[in-house]
Design a protein around this nucleic acid. Structure first.
Length: 456
RNA sequence: GCGGGCGUAGCUUAGUGGUUUAAAGCGCCUCCCUGUCACGGAGGAGACCGUGGGUUCAAAUCCCAUCGCCCGCG
């Protein structure tokens, strides 16, 4: 796979003049070249010390300083321009000192292009309430996952989780036979002051328990920034609390105040020339989103991240995003954290998002799911019709067709579904590699197409 | 030929002190996974317990026969 796919970055040179870039003298700069007429979408270029990023684009998730299953050359060949690495994971192992001594992240992982590090704020959720409730950042309307309650240390499960985020939890508890007097002992609806089991969130920061060795560690805005400075990515994020989707209004209000205070501390702490992005939170509450966007947007950040969830109703996301985006400075880049289903991408680009990261292309690839152009009529999509194929299914063993007839990636040019299916069933790591390569290529190509259509 | 052992879901086995819908792992099917997770989550289908007979209110489990496989001795 190495080195075979060349020139698959879609340098849309028609959209801007390259010489303009050369004239940019600042280390970090964001230039908008074109704005859509019918939406907030824009085409831009982000310049960093390690090169440029054409936006809008997807930043693949490289949690532990690698896009799982791929070499850097492959990640580049697939059209990816910037990666997001995780601060807390690297802090736990190998530790930022090791990375710094190795010459910084770029040198350490041999990635010559731009990098960003997530602050660890998401782990406040995923290692906390996310784990307690067995839920993802976004509580879906059709969530079939069971909800786990903890009643006096005992696990109670409800399989019919109600999509309504707050009242639903109480119904759920009732179905589990948890009575009123017990309810106060149950970690269900997350109220102000409530703590996850495994970590403690204070006004100053968060006490984590390392899953590697059980060691206690504290991460606050200062700690996060200092670690991120040592890691040395081009773009770093302010330490935030990614709040759980079950949080009630008071919890959320309190949470954004914390995130706002931490944002100021992050700005004061940072000494390097790295670009620092503040993070807007506020969950599904429009007024809190607006409040957060106004506050964070008023601070001298180099760009802005938008985190958390936007409510179970998918259609509201665009609305909420626009609400946030209009409060942020027009000339600065906006990053949507952890969102990027294919069907979301047109919406978020239209809402004015420049970069977004999402583990779906790579994560799903490792689970055997390939995103491909829809073969049949089941498009149901405004831009490119696509479908998901589960290559683990036995039926693909007999399928001699290429993964995606309309895809020009190395995998689709060289491998058939039967072989990829076999690799997955045989648990051969090459299967993960092939699908990761294809999915990222597919997402990047898809984004290019969306850009073309939106911008006209 | 004699002696011993084994035959339970597609596979590997648990259950043989007779008790309701015969258990588990893997495999299979469906669904899920959005800034954590290749070796993950939730469901589901699937065996009349080699075959035939017998004992009993009741047998995968006891008895007899038979077939198949394995081991030892000839």
């Amino acid at each position: 796979m190495c080195g075979i796919i060349k020139n698959c970055r879609y340098l849309t040179s028609d959209n801007f003049n390259l010489t303009t870039l050369i004239l940019i003298s600042y280390m970090f700069e964001f230039k908008i070249f074109k704005k859509a007429k019918n939406s907030r979408a824009r085409i831009g270029v982000l310049k960093t010390e390690h090169g440029i990023v054409e936006t809008p684009c997807l930043a693949p998730v490289a949690t532990q300083a690698t896009v799982k299953a791929l070499t850097n050359e492959e990640t580049e060949n697939v059209g990816s321009q910037i990666l997001i690495v995780n601060t807390l994971y690297l802090h736990l192992s190998p530790g930022e000192k090791i990375v710094a001594k190795a010459g910084g992240l770029h040198e350490f992982m041999n990635w010559k292009n731009p990098l960003m590090t997530d602050s660890g704020g998401f782990q406040v959720f995923s290692w906390g309430f996310g784990k307690d409730f067995g839920i993802g950042k976004i509580l879906k309307a059709k969530n079939k996952k069971s909800l786990t309650f903890f009643l006096e240390g005992k696990k109670v499960r409800d399989k019919k989780i109600n999509p309504a985020p707050f009242g639903g939890i109480l119904d759920s508890a009732e179905r589990c036979g948890i009575n009123n007097s017990q309810l106060q002992n149950v970690s269900a609806s997350i109220e102000r002051g409530q703590q996850p089991r495994l970590l403690k969130i204070t006004d100053e920061g968060v006490f984590f328990t390392s899953f590697l060795d059980g060691k206690k560690l504290f991460l606050g805005p200062r700690e996060s920034i200092k670690i991120q400075e040592k890691l040395g990515a081009d773009i770093i994020f302010a330490f935030d609390e990614c709040p759980p989707p079950l949080a009630d209004y008071k919890y959320m209000k309190n949470s954004i105040l914390k995130t706002h205070n931490w944002a100021k501390v992050c700005l004061e702490t940072k000494k390097t020339k790295q670009a620092l992005f503040g993070i807007v939170q506020g969950g599904r509450y429009k007024d809190l989103r607006q409040e957060s966007a106004k506050f964070i947007g008023s601070l001298p950040f180099d760009g802005f991240g938008i985190g958390g969830e936007f409510g179970a109703d998918k259609n509201k996301m665009s609305e909420m995003l626009e609400q946030v985006v209009k409060e942020l400075p027009e000339q600065k880049p906006r990053h949507l954290l952890g969102i990027g289903y294919l069907e979301d991408i047109p919406k978020i680009i239209k809402a004015g998002i420049d970069i977004f990261d999402c583990n779906v292309p790579t994560h799903y690839a490792r689970r055997g799911i390939a995103f491909v152009h829809a073969q049949g009529r089941n498009s149901g999509h405004n831009f490119i019709s696509f479908e998901k194929l589960n290559l683990k299914q036995a039926k693909f063993l007999k399928d001699k067709s290429s993964l995606d007839k309309k895809c020009f990636c190395f995998v689709c040019q060289n491998f058939k579904k039967n072989y990829i299916s076999h690799l997955f069933r045989a648990k051969e790591i090459t299967g993960l590699r092939l699908l990761t390569f294809h999915n990222l290529y597919f997402f990047n190509k898809y984004i290019e197409e969306v850009k073309r259509k939106i911008m006209g």
